[in-house]
Design a protein around this nucleic acid. Structure first.
Ligand SMILES: [Zn+2]
Ligand SMILES: [Zn+2]
Ligand SMILES: [Zn+2]
Ligand SMILES: [Zn+2]
Lengths: 121, 121
DNA sequence: AGCACAAATGAAAATGATTTTCATTTTCGT
DNA sequence: ACGAAAATGAAAATCATTTTCATTTGTGCT
């Protein structure tokens, strides 16, 4: 855990939700921190690899990040405002596992996102 | 509906699933069509606006497209050799629908892929 | 402290998908 | 056929992200 990662985590805590790399960089600069955009990207990538940060994509393809409290989970994402809800995934987990077993696959993982328009949009 | 849009629809029909703009362009060229990459992007954007084509994003942010109404299905993908199997998704469909309803989301869609190592790898 | 070596940093350049510009070609109505 | 409008695509621009690489910083050892 290097200095950049600590800075990025602290700004993510302050933000308390999703933000893009560029937004986080701006926030850090505005709050007086000295850090390069490259280091923000590097820190985020490393935190995502370590599953400390969740990464997903806006509709325009830009990546957004947020601190990830729990372990493995899935999201319900609003196509319009980007707000997200964590959802219960046991049915999905069972399905993924069953499908993999049925076809003899090992070392199984999965990716699943549900998207739609949220009630307030 | 101009020529480019017709070409793009026909190649999407042939593909029968998701493909990126660049992939579609390559497929069109290989099958002897003459069309510029710009026109492929323009046609896709217009078809998405008209809700004839679905657009979503891979994890790396690249946009992928498919015909709306294309039989919806999911894949089991080998992490090592890339081979894919179509899998049965009714359990997943139910889950996605239930989660969206539970949170009051409308116009719901979802994205799900299962990864693993196939028996022959 | 002094030295060597590894890790971290960030500015600048590269990358790659997508969009914009703009000059040319095609289509369409009269 | 004529002119306006739409379509086309090559080249340039855009923009988030990644890579490169020279410099700085941290760490362990003497
Ligand atoms: Zn919303
Ligand atoms: Zn899961
Ligand atoms: Zn395989
Ligand atoms: Zn499905």
């Amino acid at each position: 855990m290097n200095k950049s990662e600590i800075k990025v985590i602290s700004v993510l805590e302050r933000v308390g939700g999703f933000a893009s790399a560029q937004q986080l960089h701006q926030l850090l600069l505005r709050s007086g921190e000295s850090i390069g955009l490259t280091s923000v990207y590097r820190a985020l990538q490393s935190l995502v690899d370590d599953k400390i940060v969740d990464q997903l994509r806006k509709e325009d393809g830009e990546a957004i990040y947020r601190l990830c409290g729990e372990a493995h989970h899935h999201h319900l994402v609003c196509k319009s405002c980007g707000s997200t809800v964590e959802i219960e995934g046991s049915a999905l987990e069972k399905w993924a596992k069953a499908m993999a077993e049925e076809h003899g696959y090992r070392e199984v993982g999965h990716l699943a996102e549900v998207f739609g328009i949220c009630p307030s949009c």
